[in-house]
């Protein structure tokens, strides 16, 4: 992957990465930090990525890890200002936002990643499996289990 391709890919997915990070840290600034750190990590470790086709999933995974790491290490608390700066909730629908749903379902990290790749990125399951370097069967299993869990959430349907 060339530098230009790297930047192009990051640019195309920046918002999605932010959303993924935000779903973990729930904090606009930390989410941005997580994305930024992930991008830096990705660039530094780009030679470890053998298949450019997996870049999106790889970067998403790193972003997730960075966000989790940030959360573990005590990132900033939710900031009203940060939220307003970078993320606009619809208060009438706040309890049903996308990552509120997947968070409420108590999904593991991979399942959440699958759902994000599927719904935020728009990849189908085979593409998601490729992105995550997982067997399609695993992706399917996690995907449908996740949907099962979500479907059982009160008030979801």
């Amino acid at each position: 992957m060339t530098k230009e391709e790297f930047v192009s890919s990051v640019t195309a997915n920046e918002k999605k990465l932010y959303i993924a990070a935000f779903s973990v840290v729930r904090n606009a600034e930390d989410a941005k930090d997580a994305v930024s750190s992930a991008v830096a990590h990705a660039w530094e470790n780009l030679d470890r990525l053998n298949d450019d086709g997996k870049f999106d999933g790889w970067l998403l995974r790193i972003t997730y890890n960075e966000a989790k790491k940030m959360k573990r290490h005590g990132g900033d608390s939710v900031s009203l200002t940060g939220l307003e700066d970078s993320f606009a909730y619809d208060p009438d629908d706040a309890d049903m936002q996308f990552f509120d749903i997947i968070s409420s379902a108590g999904l593991d990290g991979k399942s959440r990643q699958i759902l994000i790749l599927r719904f935020i990125y728009g990849y189908d399951l085979p593409e998601t499996a490729k992105m995550m370097s997982l067997p399609l069967s695993t992706v399917k299993t996690k995907y449908y289990r996740a949907l099962d869990k979500i479907k059982k959430l009160p008030g979801i349907i």
Binding site: S36, V39, D85, S86, F98, L115, F119, Y144, L147
Partner: peptide
């Protein structure tokens, strides 16, 4: 459970995801 049984929840998630992206007044992380 058939895959068709998940259609409704997939539609909900797709809608939420679309709303999420749309509603993120995101000014750029990088």
């Amino acid at each position: 459970m058939k895959k068709s049984d998940y259609k409704d929840i997939e539609e909900i998630l797709s809608d939420k995801a679309a709303r999420l992206e749309k509603r993120v007044g995101y000014s750029g992380a990088v």
